[in-house]
Nucleic acid binder design. Structure first.
Lengths: 213, 213, 213, 213
DNA sequence: CATGAATGAGTGTTCATTCAT
DNA sequence: TATGAATGAACACTCATTCAT
């Protein structure tokens, strides 16, 4: 039993090292050698904890998603509706160095996710989780009467998902152009478009671009 | 006299083959061997038309951008303001097989663009072109009085850019989820948020989110 | 526990194989494939023991020099002055098959030593060792009163160095023309020119061309 | 007939370019591409004037030897015996930039001469010419009574040949250590050892190291 | 005569993986 | 459990050569 704990810890250690290598050398530079070197152990040992390289990479992506999900859970505690949605979205956007790394890893996988069926299935499965989470929060907001008009739930969910992916790409490719406050402003603009009260001038400070954070 | 070969045509032929390989096998599978095999010639011949592999890949990306740019030029002829902006955006979104391929290539490069400085410079340079183009059209729309309220030009440009990248990623990763009409609907929603007449419910709702597909 | 391999022994084995390949196929024929084939192992294994090919070649040259140096040390034990110098020189000349191989390797490197700075530095450094060794023995001989007249130490050292290089080249290029006894005779003629007694016709002519070995 | 002249001129032009490439990039860098580029013509044209690359390299070496030989002929005009020998030797030593290049080319070939039988035959044949020339001059000197004692003609010839090769190697590898005056001094020391008059202290200024040139 | 497109073998190198220890 | 030696395939690239024009 304790060995299993050690095993999991070692696995996480290896995956964290994998992240660092991807962030430093790109996904093409994330070789078995580089990862083992980053961990500080021999190459062969990786085979003990993972099936093969694809397993390492997939697990690294999965762990990244799990961390984001855990942060989202924590951030939304005690919240509901649009407020919860906003908190969850803030965990998905690359607002700081940690989230930058996650975005970098995510995008690095995009170029590969299509090829390996295993990786593709994982990607789809993980996306489904995010999609469902956002959709549920939107439904909750609708049930709470926070949304102004009749609206298409899937369409709205898409808007948020597209915002995450678009901002992640922009942030990774042109980091200087997308500071945190700009990201939050874009998010708030989107949120504001839903909570638009019949009276156009509501208490919606989020509607117009303003530095947040 | 040596055999006269249209050098530019041959270069384009090689680059088109490169696209197909990237689309089929991913950017990691776009080896010299695979490209030469796709072209139907020997490996060494590629050295006649390009300096090295980086030159091939960079040229492939550049050509892709040039084609999109040319399509945008053509699509916007005789148009101004928001109408021109909409036509241009429609050329940037992955609405059909051809544009899907372009989006696939684009995203494949994202994972690599960060590492090689040459590719990164190219990426930044090309992005600047797109940014400027969208920004100019928005300014034109503002000058024409098409926009409802005072607004932040850079902020608005960002909204469109994020839409392109977000939709490209979504389309490449989960093609079934983002059919063409959904993409157009998302674009029109964004456009509608600018042309929003003083009366919030203008003639735009027709354009607004409607269940497509 | 992994298979324990004497790393240094394996390195030496590879370098010895490199020598044989150079001797057989020339330095241009000393490819990674040929060396691996000579060793009797796969190509990739060489990467375990050396950084790259330049490392192999440089190490091969260095080991050759080290062996000559070790032989010189051994040969000069208990000797001083001109006698020690003669013993040392006999180890530097291509008098037998083993030394022929060394000369062949040495000359093969001359055509390449100029280009790669690493190899050139190594060559200069190794030459400095030989130069210093010969010069010190000449000084010792002078201190012992073995030399007839006031003489230029550097000039004399040059005479011996030129003899080594000249004979090495001749032996490698035209082996039949420079048998061992001829080489020794040339060496003794040079040595005799220093120990020339006041009476020019001393006991030295006896030293002159005589079959040695 | 005029075409033949052009052909020879073109051949010489190509060979001169080959020298420059060898001097600049080493013999390993003397590729067909580099030579054609240095000449300023296409690659295929070289096949019109030479059979193949080995023919080019061999011809380059041959032309180098021919030039040295021509200089020797010219330098020895009107001279006999040791004086002629000295003049001839001065043309064989790397005393200036032009001769440095020749020595560089010569040594570059040494590492390759052994492998190609064609090149080896050429090398032997050319060496025979030099050997015979030096030997004849030494015999002439003996006949003229310039040489002090009975001596071994082949042995003496070897001394001069070894001096040439040894000095060439030293000059190419460590140019700063072997300035022209040092070379001439070494030559004169060797010459002096033959002309040693019965009276040991003759008018032989060449015997002791002195800056010449 | 001359060109340059085209070929295919060969280069050094890197990689994921296996396996005996 | 952990090591690292060993493998063999694949990589980008360079080269000498051929040949239709």
């Amino acid at each position: 039993m304790p060995k299993i704990v050690d095993t999991d810890a070692k696995r996480d250690e290896i995956l964290a090292a994998t992240w660092r290598v991807i962030a430093r050398d790109g996904i093409a530079g994330a070789t078995i050698r580089a990862i083992a070197s980053e961990v500080g152990c021999s190459r062969g040992i990786l085979a003990h904890y993972f099936d093969d390289k694809a397993d390492i990479m997939g697990s690294a992506l999965l762990l990244s998603h799990r961390r984001v999900g855990a942060r989202m859970d924590k951030a939304a505690i005690g919240m509901r509706g649009l407020a919860a949605l906003r908190s969850v979205m803030l965990e998905a956007l690359p607002l700081d160095a940690e989230r930058d790394l996650e975005a970098q890893i995510e995008i690095s996988f995009w170029g590969r996710a299509l090829r390996t069926s295993k990786l593709r299935d994982l990607q789809h499965q993980e996306f489904e989780r995010l999609w469902t989470r956002l959709r549920q929060l939107l439904r909750q907001a609708a049930d709470l009467g926070e949304l102004a008009e009749p609206f298409d739930l899937d369409f709205a969910t898409h808007q948020f998902v597209v915002l995450i992916d678009g901002l992640s790409a922009q942030r990774v490719l042109y980091p200087d152009r997308v500071p945190a406050d700009r990201q939050v402003a874009l998010l708030d603009r989107l949120l504001g478009s839903f909570s638009a009260a019949p009276s156009d001038s509501g208490p919606e400070p989020a509607r117009s671009p303003r530095p947040a954070r």
